[in-house]
Structures are given as structure tokens and as C-alpha cells.
Design a protein around this nucleic acid. Structure first.
Lengths: 348, 348
DNA sequence: ATTAGCACTCAATGATGATGAGTGCTAACA
DNA sequence: TGTTAGCACTCATCATCATTGAGTGCTAAT
């Protein structure tokens, strides 16, 4: 176990390093008011901490910087349990209360605010589509041979897609079609729509409406919506990390942005974060391109059901306390907001 | 006027500089097969070109790089009139043909493809909303006290927004409301919807439907859609410029990204590009933050009406011929595609 | 008009030394 | 026995300086 003094010095080193991004020497620590021992003593402590693997040097006579193990320990044992930082949490709450008009916009705004507050990059994974159900479908004839299908989900997401229709089809047929679709498909999980249409509705529709098969084929394609159905990612503060000194060479910038372009990979990782707030530091990340960073993730829920994940990416030299506090707050507030928002949508 | 030899050497210098991004010396030029004079002679020619303002030096004994005036001259007089680069143009055409299912996606994909083909950053300005009209409106009740209004424009754009409704209001009232709205508002320019509702429909609606004023107030707000109504920007290849050697220092990267965040400014600039293909080089740009770059813009149309602008941002050291060819091709193809797509939408 | 030759300029590179922030170790001290 | 002053040592950083080489402009010869 660590002595109290060791802990204190360790914490100070982390704090200083997070501020300055430069190796911390014994002198800087000794200048802290709360420290009454000499630099030499601190050097001894530092040597101990290094031996235990919490600190490391950049070269043989440099100051110390936290190791990955050091950060891990810091996060697990030294990050004090969320002191509610009132003003910042309020910012978040206000957004969710005032601006709660639309899922996508709320999420997008949250991502941006969180990035502004932390100076890191936010990624929010939207609700799993497996969970969302069709609320209503609408078809709007746009030109003589094209129409737009609009799908509204129970989560308030609106998806739309244009498709080709034969010129012969008339408006009242479309109206009938829409009616049948709504009667039979409302409440069905989005992921099953296409299948249901094919298996259960095709005959029914053809019985009732004078409609060509191609329309149904197109509609089936529309209902598949492969791309749209995978959960969406919302980004905030993509450019924020440019401010961090660890990005002084272009190479890192480049690799960061190519990482951010691999949305499938990112989505995969965020999907796994269903449980609770998680901090994954450097090499702990499975995905290679993130191994220079720390990823902090927290789920948000609808009631008890996992809905999606909020994530922050920053340098391993991260303001962990602040980040964790804010992320916890946001995930809590989002969960709350969604609860109030949707609590009656379960009823109908 | 320039002699033929001066022209040839000038062109070679530009070509070389575009490739290498390094000042070009007389030796490099003399090594070109098509040049039969000695480096000394080339130096004389270069001195002439410099005196005329087409070239400049980075220091007193360096090779030459093109000046802004040089690029201007190159673009105006030496860029050969678009030799159709078949394979690339075909890529563009395929996207527009195969993928023409939805305006937004086509535009987004075009932006990305154009960026991939050029390695610069693409910005596409969506259709002016002043030109677009309401095709149909739909209201979907989402929860007991919220509803989503969905607006489809004649250009196939789908906008939606959630708003609060009183719990009392019932579905058949909403249906009636939607009917009236569609009867009276279809074909009206998006920009006037809110006003029309207030001035002409308020009484009519209240006459026919048992509805509270607050609903209409909310609806009026929804129809305003301030943010959504300003033409949208679609980006492609935002990270591409990182590859260019002129971005080796982080400062430039940073200023580039802050420039890209000023969407209003960018939209303003692109709106002015209604006429024809324009190349604006460095300081020719009014907007300061772009003055290190070259902006190439081309409009796309619906018939003869200006719809929006396609733009490429790259370093002044740009592959002008290629860029211009591709941009012309894309603007032509988009105009064509929209024409075929919408030609009958004028009729109804 | 062209070009070989030459002196000159300057960015880029690398070697050298000084500086200083930092260490570990030893010995003295409380 | 834990703390600390003192000291030799390490190494990144920075400035200085010389070298190199790619480039120029000018002059004189072709």
C-alpha cells in the first residue's frame, strides 16, 4: 500500500502534469504549500513510486510523468466521488430542459457542449435501432415517378428516403397503402419492418389495392434502410484536440482524424460500453489507433434499457476528475430527460 | 505579351511547383526533354518572368515559385479548355445516376467523391430556401403532449421538428388541421409559411377545428425553422488538406479548421458564386481566413435557376486543370441530374 | 542571342559547447 | 531511522559556428 505522503505527492504530480504536460521534478512539488519536506525527500518518494510502476521518466535525468498504470490507479482510487460542479451541470441541464424539442438536436448539442466544457472530443452513440419501433409511416409523392417514404420512430427519430414509383399509381392508392402500413406496422421494431412487409402484408396489400409488385419491392428496400438503421454517431469538438500540446506534430493529428473516420469501429467500441462509466486508458484500448488516448464512456438509458453511449476522447493526460464528473452528469441528465419525455409514449 | 518560350517555361515551373511544393531552379527546368536551352538562358527568362510579376523568390538565391499574379495568369490563359478526363467524370456520373435517391445524400456523396478525387476539401451549398416551396406537411403525434411536424419541399428536402401540444387535442383534430394546412400551404415558398399561417389561416382553422391558440403559436414557431431555412452546407474531405505539405505546422491547421467553422461566412461567399466557374486565388478572397487558399466555385442549377454552389478549397499551389475539369463536370452532371429528376415536378 | 564560368547568397544541416533542470547517491544531521 | 544538504552526473535544449549545396546574377566568350 501507499503511504499518505506517497499518495499526496503522486496526486500532485498528476495534477501538475495534467496542467503543464511537462515532466515534473522534485522542486516543483516541494514548492507546493501543503508539502513541508525537501526536494531530496520527494526524490526518494518519486523513486519509490517509479519502482512501483506509477511514474516513469522520459530520460535518465528528467522529471517524472505518470505511467499508464499510474493513471489507472489515479482514476480507480484517487478521483473523488463526483463533487457536483454546479455551474457546469446546470449548463447541461438547461440544454436538456429548454431545448428538448428533438432527439437528434439535443444529442448534437450535448456533444458540442460537452466538448466545449472539456476541450476534448465528444462522440455520442445514438439509440440502438433494435430497440426503436415504428411510430408512423408516411409516403409523399414528390414527382410523377418518385415518392418519399418518411418513417417516424417511437424515439422521435425521423428517417426518410426517396424511391421510384410507376407513373400510373394514383394518390388514393398511396393513401390506402399508407393506411394499411400504419395499421399493421406501427409498434413493430424498425429492424423487422422489411421482413414483415414481405411476409405478412404483401398479399393483403395486393388484395386491397391495385398496385404493382415493383412498388412493394421498392418499398421493401426502403424499409431496410441498412445504413440508417445502424446506430448513429454524433460528434462534437472534433477540432478540439488540436489545442492539446501532444498534437504538436502533424502526424498525430493525421492519425487521429483517420481514426475518427472509422465510424464502424468506433460504434462497435461504444456499443460495448453498456454498463456504467468506464475509463479506458492508452493501451488498455483494444483498438490500436486509440491507444495513444483515453476513452471515457458512459451509457444513457430509457428507464432501465440501455439506449446509447456518451464518450469523450482526450489525451491520457486528461482532467479525469472533471471529465468524469461532467460525463456522469450528462448521462444522468440525459437519462432523466428521456424518461420524462417518453414516459407516456409507452402507454400509446 | 509573353513569348512562346516564356510561356513554356512558366508553365513548367507551375507544374513542377504544384508537384513538389519546393522552389524551382533553372536546372530542374533545363532537364525537361522539351527544353533545349541551358540553365543560364532559363535564368534569364525566369528573371524576365519575375520582373513581370508572375514569379517570385523565397529568398535572394532561391529558385522561383509562382506569384499570385502568376497563378491568375495561369488559370486565365494556360488552363486548357477541359479535356474530358473520362474515367473521373464517369465516377461522378455513376454516383448521380445510380444513387439518385435523395437530394441530401447525393450532395453529400458528391462532396466526398470530389474530395477523394482532388485531395482538397469540398463544400457544397444546398439549394436556396427562398426558391423551395412546400410540397406537403405532416404532423405525427409522438407522445401525449408532443408531436413532430414534417415538411417536405418540392426539392425533396425533408425537415422535421418536434413541438409541444396540449394533452386534450385529439387525432382527428390533427388530421383536420393537416388537411387545411396542406390545402392552403402547398406550393407556398418555405420562407413565407409562418407568415401565411398567421395572417390567412388562423381564423379559418379556429373556425373549423376545436383547437387552442397555443397549438397554432407553436406551429408558427415550427414553420419558421430559422436555422434550417438557411441553405445548408455539405462538407467532404475536411481532413484532406492535412496531407498537403503547406500544413506542416499546426498553426495553419488550426486556422483552417476555425475558418471552416464559420459556416455563415462560408455560406455568404458561396451564395455570391451564382454565375459560372470562378477561381479565387489567395488574397483575391475577401474573407481573410481564406487568403492563404484558393477557392474554386461552380454553380449548379435547376433548368436556368441557380440552385446552389459547389466549392473546392485547396492550397494556392493547386492542380488547377484537374480541379477545374472535375468541378465543371460535377456541376454539369448535377444540373443535368436535377433537371431530369425534377422536370415533371414543375407540372404538379 | 546563348551560354560557360564564377562569385555570391542563403537555407539547411550538423557539430560543438554552454546552460540548467533534473536525477541518484552519500554523508551528515535530528 | 527518516530527512536533507551537497555534489557529481545526465541529458534535453538552445545558441553559435562552419560546411554544404542548390540556387542566383553578372560578365565575358562563343
Amino acid at each position: 500500500m501507499l503511504t499518505e505522503r506517497q499518495l499526496k505527492i503522486f496526486q500532485l504530480i498528476i495534477d501538475e502534469f495534467v496542467k503543464s504536460a511537462r515532466p515534473i521534478g522534485s522542486r516543483i512539488i516541494s514548492e507546493n504549500e501543503s508539502i513541508s519536506v525537501s526536494p531530496a525527500t520527494i526524490r526518494n518518494v518519486m523513486a519509490d513510486l517509479e519502482e512501483m510502476g506509477f511514474l516513469k521518466k522520459t530520460h535518465s535525468s528528467s522529471g517524472r510523468i505518470p505511467s499508464q498504470k499510474g493513471y489507472r490507479f489515479y482514476v480507480d482510487h484517487l478521483v473523488t466521488p463526483v463533487t457536483k460542479n454546479i455551474s457546469n451541470v446546470n449548463v447541461i441541464r438547461h440544454i436538456l430542459e429548454d431545448g428538448f424539442y428533438e432527439f437528434e438536436k439535443v444529442v448534437q448539442m450535448s456533444a458540442e457542449v460537452l466538448s466545449d466544457l472539456t476541450n476534448y472530443t465528444t462522440i455520442i452513440l445514438g439509440p440502438e435501432v433494435y430497440e426503436t419501433r415504428l411510430k408512423q409511416i408516411q409516403i409523399v409523392k414528390l414527382t410523377a415517378h418518385t415518392a418519399i417514404a418518411i418513417l417516424v420512430t417511437n424515439t422521435g427519430l425521423v428517417e426518410h428516403r426517396t424511391f421510384v414509383i410507376p407513373a400510373e399509381i394514383n394518390s388514393s392508392d398511396i393513401e390506402k397503402l399508407v393506411n394499411i402500413l400504419n395499421e399493421r406496422l406501427a409498434g413493430i421494431p424498425m429492424i423487422q419492418l422489411s421482413e414483415k412487409l414481405d411476409e405478412e402484408l404483401r398479399l393483403l396489400i395486393k388484395h386491397n389495392i391495385n398496385i404493382v409488385d415493383t412498388v412493394l419491392d421498392h418499398l421493401k428496400e426502403v424499409l431496410k434502410m441498412e445504413d440508417e438503421l445502424t446506430a448513429k454517431l454524433y460528434f462534437g469538438g472534433k477540432a478540439n484536440l488540436l489545442k492539446q500540446p501532444e498534437f504538436k506534430d502533424i502526424e498525430k493529428v493525421h492519425s487521429f482524424y483517420s481514426m475518427m473516420e472509422e465510424q464502424d469501429k468506433i460504434a462497435d467500441i461504444l456499443k460495448r460500453a453498456e454498463d456504467t462509466l468506464q475509463v479506458t486508458i492508452g493501451r488498455e484500448n483494444e483498438y490500436e489507433l486509440i491507444q495513444d488516448f483515453t476513452l471515457v464512456t458512459a451509457p444513457y438509458r430509457l428507464g432501465n434499457d440501455y439506449m446509447g453511449t456518451i464518450a469523450l476522447i482526450g489525451p491520457t493526460r486528461m482532467q479525469y476528475r472533471r471529465t468524469i464528473t461532467l460525463l456522469k452528469a450528462l448521462s444522468y441528465e440525459m437519462t432523466e430527460a428521456f424518461y420524462h419525455w417518453y414516459k407516456d409514449s409507452h402507454l400509446n
